[in-house]
């Protein structure tokens, strides 16, 4: 559940990030058009809102909001630390792989903690 909320926050931040000029160019190799950017922003915001709902479900409204801010912050920090690596990788596929790496790794780590 927490792993899911973190993953959703992370993908939300990633989508928002790729909708930005510099990061879109660096990772996808092109600046997204106006429509694409709008769609990405909507999708990213929806994912972050989804993470908030998951946090409400787990912690209730007051503590859930706090947890959500924390999760989004941590997701953003992970993304920031990975972006330079992805920028150095060659090819859009490799770049995306760099950026999506934390998801399986995180899931495995959560599995270890849970088991």
């Amino acid at each position: 559940m927490i792993a899911l909320a973190l993953a959703v926050s992370y993908i939300g931040m990633l989508v928002l990030c790729l909708a930005m000029d510099r990061h879109g160019r660096d990772v996808l190799g092109r600046v997204p058009g106006r429509g694409g950017r709008l769609a990405a922003r909507l999708l990213g915001s929806a994912l972050l809102a989804g993470a908030l709902v998951l946090c409400f479900d787990r912690w209730g409204h007051a503590i859930g909001t706090t947890a959500w801010l924390g999760l989004v912050t941590v997701a953003g920090l992970v993304l920031i630390l990975l972006l330079p690596f992805s920028v150095r990788a060659a090819g859009t596929g490799a770049r995306m792989a760099c950026l999506l790496a934390p998801l399986p790794v995180g899931a495995m780590a959560m599995g270890v903690f849970a088991g």
Binding site: M20, L81, P84, R88
Partner: peptide
């Protein structure tokens, strides 16, 4: 917000 995700250690 423009520099939100920008980190260029290199």
């Amino acid at each position: 917000f423009k520099d939100f995700f920008t980190f260029r250690p290199a």
